[in-house]
Simulated assay, not measured.
Amino acid sequence: MAVSDHKKDPDAVLDWVWDWNEYLDEGETIVTSEFIVSVGITVDSESNTTKTATVWLSGGTAGQVYQVTNRITSSAGRTDDRSITIRVTER
Rank of each mutant, 00 (worst) to 15 (best):
N48D: 10
A2I: 07
G60W: 07
T69I: 08
N48G: 06
T73M: 13
S83M: 08
V13Q: 12
A76C: 04
N70W: 03
S75T: 14
A53R: 12
G63T: 06
V55E: 05
W16M: 01
I86L: 02
G60P: 01
T32V: 11
T61G: 05
L14Y: 12
R91Y: 15
T49E: 05
N21S: 15
L14S: 08
D9E: 09
E46R: 14
S75N: 02
L24M: 13
E28N: 13
G59W: 10
L14T: 12
N70T: 00
T73W: 09
E34H: 13
I36K: 14
P10V: 03
I36H: 11
S38G: 07
V43P: 02
T32W: 11
I41K: 08
K8F: 05
R82E: 04
I41A: 07
A12G: 09
S47I: 10
A62N: 13
K8D: 02
H6F: 03
Q64M: 07
V13M: 11
D5V: 09
L24G: 04
E90A: 13
L14P: 00
A76F: 15
L57W: 12
G77N: 03
E22W: 11
D9Y: 07
A2L: 04
H6I: 04
G60Q: 09
L14M: 13
V3L: 05
T85K: 07
D80A: 05
R87D: 01
T29P: 03
Y66M: 00
W16V: 04
Q67G: 01
T42I: 10
V68Q: 01
T52N: 06
S58L: 12
W56N: 15
Q67L: 02
G40H: 14
V39N: 14
E90V: 14
D80I: 08
D9M: 04
E22V: 13
A62W: 02
L57G: 10
V39F: 12
T54N: 11
S75H: 11
G27A: 10
T52M: 07
D25K: 14
T52V: 09
S83E: 02
D44W: 08
L24H: 11
T85Y: 09
Q64W: 06
K8S: 01
D9L: 04
S38I: 06
D15A: 13
S58W: 15
S75P: 05
I36A: 07
I72E: 01
D19P: 01
E26M: 06
E46F: 15
E46I: 11
V55N: 12
